[in-house]
Amino acid sequence: MTYSQRLVNLLLGLAPVALALMLSTLVLIAAGAPPLEAYKHLLQGASESPAKIADVLVVWVPLALCSAGLLFTFTAGLWNIGVEGQIIFGVIFATWVARNLYLPATLLIPLMIVGGMIGGALWGLLAGTLKVYGGVHEIFAGLGLNFIAITTNIWLIAKPWRPDLGATMQGTDPFPAAAWLPRLAGLRLSPVSLLLATMALVVVFFILRGTLWGLQLKAIGKNARSAYLLGIATNRHVLLSFALCGALAGVAGVVQVSGVWGRNIPQISGGIGYLSLLVAMLSGFRALGVAPVALFFAALGVGAARLHLRMQLDPSLAGVLGAGLVLSVLLVAGLRTRLLISREG
């Protein structure tokens, strides 16, 4: 690569960031806030104290888990929109384990994790089955199943798992102490969840990069027809990628109930499933990219709370900023391909 080519690549890499900053500055000005001050608060809000950094990691963990899972389905060329529902079924299975098995933490927590993985995997598998055998496009299967999962969880919380005192829709009773993930002293962060997310990213990285199964998945994603003719069992691989993605989303669900909230609540998935789609896209569908991109989104979310406190700006502004960045990246990538095509014909 020549020096000028490198420079062009670097500029193209920075272009989306610059574009996103420009967009969000415009939004901030339109909202009547001094942009520089807002950025300062965002940055400080996410990093000024160990507690804040821990909070960022608390958000990072489920994002990283779900995005890692999504790398399987994206590699196979699938749009698994159903991550949200897969998180919730992980939550439902883990909640059942926490409420029904009276075991010490050393047994209960692994069982909850396994239960969550099974719940998420089954829900993912359902979307996959609908696609492979029912001819339902995975986007619609995922969307439909998300609604069913959310409604099921609300019903469970409102009926069978209703707290004894009063029937508010706030959530279940807090889990027994043995079902809580251990936390770092004074922080909301659990080292176990951090370990789980990191492990997931490492395993996904090696599976997609170095294994025959990863390569077969890639082949299916690029051309399922040719892959089938080459003798790859495409249906089985597609189902497995859904199950694995669901399992990791299920783990994210377990982390949410047993590490963050300590009980099951209706809005337990909190849009993480959708946000992780953006994370996976922005990372270029690479495990190495997921960690920093998820960190960025987590920081944006945590920092935005302070934007609200100090500048009376709605925290949903964080969503606007994040989405602006995703759109900018996709736009620059799109323009780049167009540029290359018009150059090469």
């Binding site: 890639k218 082949a219 051309n223 003719l229």
Partner: peptide, 12 residues
Amino acid sequence: EEGLIPGLNLAE
């Protein structure tokens, strides 16, 4: 369309 997989190299 039905043989090779665009996006993958020969070794793959």
